[in-house]
Amino acid sequence: MRTHSHTPRMPLFWWLRRASYLRYMLRELTCVPIAAWIVVATAGLVDLVRGPAAWQGFLHGMASPAGFTFQLIVLIAGVYHAVTWFALAPRTMPLNLGGRQVPGSWIQGAHYALLLAILVAVFVLVEI
């Protein structure tokens, strides 16, 4: 007797069914605000090249309520990307030094240290 198995179908909103799936989707969707910010930054560089008035216009636009809201959302997305990226980094590149595996927390910590160093460097560069 030939019997057939039942093949389950993946629901369209599979990512809403588990908290971890939702966190994964939010992590992936950070690419949208980040891409949007790069597009805006590119527009800003175009304004910079066009002249002082255009550059001021760009800065003013970013200071508007809409610009502020956009920047806040983007910053949250950027930070969430960084936090999740650093958490996963030790599993992507385990490090063996002197025959022993470097603890994942050290690798993660090194990333945060680098982030902080770059933050300070950029702040110093623009003389904030």
Binding site: R18, S20, Y21, Y24, E28, L88, P94
Partner: peptide, 26 residues
């Protein structure tokens, strides 16, 4: 693999398939 990571969360023997796959990508 898009590194959802759930495989490693549910593994009863504490294998990290997600990490293994990322290392293989590299």
């Amino acid at each position: 693999c898009t590194f959802v990571g759930e495989c490693s969360e549910v593994c009863p023997k504490h294998v990290d398939p997600a990490g293994a796959i990322q290392q293989m990508k590299l």
